[in-house]
């Protein structure tokens, strides 16, 4: 029942927070854009100048760049698939009434509370290490040469570690969605002779659709910026086999101390994130309104 004046008043009331949020976003973005067109290396003072698109050109021509883009997308998509598929399966499993359910759920969720570099370090040194790791010991026990996970399959190993961390998040969200499902409906369907698979396919899955969308959207935002796990385990290597866009920017910013190039990389990352976000919203965002 808003009148014209009350709507104007409403807009005035929210405007301070909107303006603050806008500045919060625009100022850093503007500074990054500004630096991305500059030659600005911390260790070569006095040589700052405008260089047009040179910094962007360097990124686009770098042999590592397309590898990094591919790895970034691979990481996001790989982790999303693993966490959603296994998240649904685990959620279905721990939704069953079993003895010790509370403790079981806490155990399943706990990897999410381990800090990323710690998780990566544990996997690197206690499991995947070719001399001291548990997996290497298992391989030797079977008479096999230990597999060099982080050297031979760096990207797959990182996807696995990140999935291990994010699986609990997906499980948690999907489990809450499952719990809101009406058991009467499921029983009714069962009495009508619907098979277990059909109940899952036509009742559970549609019910989970919105929760899956939330999982995919939230995880994508975080996965695009995954850095700690790579920094701790492979350092983007061997070579550039596990270099992602954030890691490439890190190298320019903090090892080469080249602010100009790092800023250009940051802008490229913003563009990539927007493309992915728009694509995602088009594809599945409508589920949220439903």
């Amino acid at each position: 029942m808003s009148t014209h004046s009350s709507r104007t008043a409403g807009r005035l009331m929210v405007s301070p927070s909107v303006i603050v949020l806008f500045i919060w976003m625009v100022v850093p973005l503007a500074i990054t854009i500004f630096f991305s067109f500059r030659f600005y290396r911390l260790l070569s003072p006095g040589r700052e100048r405008w260089v047009g698109f040179d910094n962007y050109a360097w990124f686009l021509n770098s042999p590592d760049f397309w590898v990094a883009i591919l790895n970034t997308l691979l990481l996001v998509i790989g982790v999303l698939i693993i966490t959603v598929v296994f998240g649904i399966l685990i959620a279905l499993l721990i939704d069953q009434p079993v003895w010790g359910q509370g403790i079981l759920r806490i155990l399943v969720i706990s990897p999410f509370f381990v800090m990323p570099p710690v998780a990566a370090s544990i996997w690197e040194n206690l499991f995947m290490h070719p001399q001291n790791g548990l997996l290497a010991a298992a391989s030797r026990g079977l008479g096999q040469e230990p597999i060099l996970y982080l050297e031979a399959y760096p990207m797959a190993s990182i996807i696995f570690i990140v999935s291990w961390e994010w699986l609990p998040f997906a499980t948690l969200i999907l489990l809450t969605a499952l719990q809101s499902m009406s058991s009467e409906q499921l029983e009714a369907a069962e009495m009508d002779g619907a098979s277990a698979f059909n109940r899952f396919r036509f009742m559970t899955l549609p019910h989970l659709k919105r929760a899956i969308t939330v999982v995919v959207l939230i995880q994508t935002i975080f996965l695009l910026g995954i850095f700690g796990e790579i920094f701790t385990t492979t350092q983007g290597g061997p070579g550039s086999a596990s270099t992602t866009l954030p890691y490439m920017i890190y190298k320019q910013a903090l090892i080469a101390k080249d602010v100009g190039r790092a800023a250009a990389g940051g802008i490229i990352a913003v563009i990539l994130a927007n493309i992915v976000a728009i694509g995602l919203m088009r594809a599945i965002g409508k589920n949220i309104d439903a």
């Binding site: 290597g237 061997p238 070579g239 086999a241 190298k251 080469a256 080249d258």
Partner: peptide, 13 residues
């Protein structure tokens, strides 16, 4: 530091 880190990646590869 920047150049040698990139070269180091190649030799590590």
């Amino acid at each position: 530091a920047g150049i040698a880190t990139s070269v180091g990646e190649l030799f590590s590869a």
